[in-house]
């Protein structure tokens, strides 16, 4: 039954059919908690779409639109700060050093659509980012980049945080990491996401390690 719902929800997202997607959310039944719906339907649908993009059968525009639709829908049934949002480490997301926001928006949307909450730092440079992360006592920092020079600056973020004694797990993503699968290690990250839908499983793995 859930598979059928995931199929239908995935189809609605790929067709950019907001009404059909909303209908599926509304028909979920009163005994299905929003977080459970996010876990059982929204996340699998977004993971399928992400996998389709990785394999070359789906386009980034579909991943992006799907994430935005889901974020809007989940916000309606599970508002920000809702106590039902997942018990989680303190997380933040940012773009480092360039103005290309798409990757960050997709990950942010997907995490929120999956029941997580996180701070959005927007575009940051190395020193401001380090200061903000220390001030907010962040446990997991997600960094999105488009340009290779921006990716290489992550090394400085890692080093400066370590010097301050901040035990922050760094998760990185963006085009340079998809073209060189060793680069995330080179810059000192703890993990990388190949696409937005990787983010949930990567975070859950890190959370297991932190437990």
């Amino acid at each position: 039954m859930t598979d059928n719902i995931v199929d239908a929800f995935t189809r609605a997202l790929l067709d950019v059919d907001r009404l059909a997607a909303k209908q599926i959310v509304q028909n979920r039944g009163h005994d299905t908690a929003p977080v459970k719906f996010a876990e059982d339907v929204v996340l699998p649908a977004l993971e399928r779409i992400g996998a389709g993009w990785q394999s070359g059968t789906l386009a980034l525009s579909q991943v992006y639109m799907a994430g935005r639709i889901c974020e809007d829908l989940i916000d309606q049934i599970l508002p920000p700060e809702d106590p039902d949002r997942k018990n989680q480490p303190k997380m933040a997301i940012c773009i480092l050093s360039d103005h290309h926001k798409l990757g960050k928006i997709m990950v942010y949307s997907l995490l929120r659509a999956s029941g997580f909450d996180l701070a959005d730092y927007g575009v940051m440079e190395v020193d401001d980012l380090v200061e903000q992360v220390q001030k907010d006592n962040i446990d997991i920092l997600l960094i999105s980049v488009l340009m290779l020079p921006s990716a290489l600056k992550i090394k400085a973020v890692k080093q400066k945080l370590a010097r301050l004694g901040c035990d922050v797990k760094l998760i990185v993503g963006g085009a340079p990491f998809r073209f060189d699968d060793q680069l995330w290690k080179t810059v000192g990250a703890d993990a990388m996401c190949r696409d937005a839908s990787d983010a949930v499983s990567v975070i859950e793995n890190i959370m297991e390690g932190m437990a």
Partner: peptide, 15 residues
């Protein structure tokens, strides 16, 4: 337009 307005808003415009 990716550089003129950003990828995200360009997708919104396109769709």
């Amino acid at each position: 337009p990716v550089m003129q307005m950003g990828f995200d808003r360009y997708f919104d415009l396109m769709f």
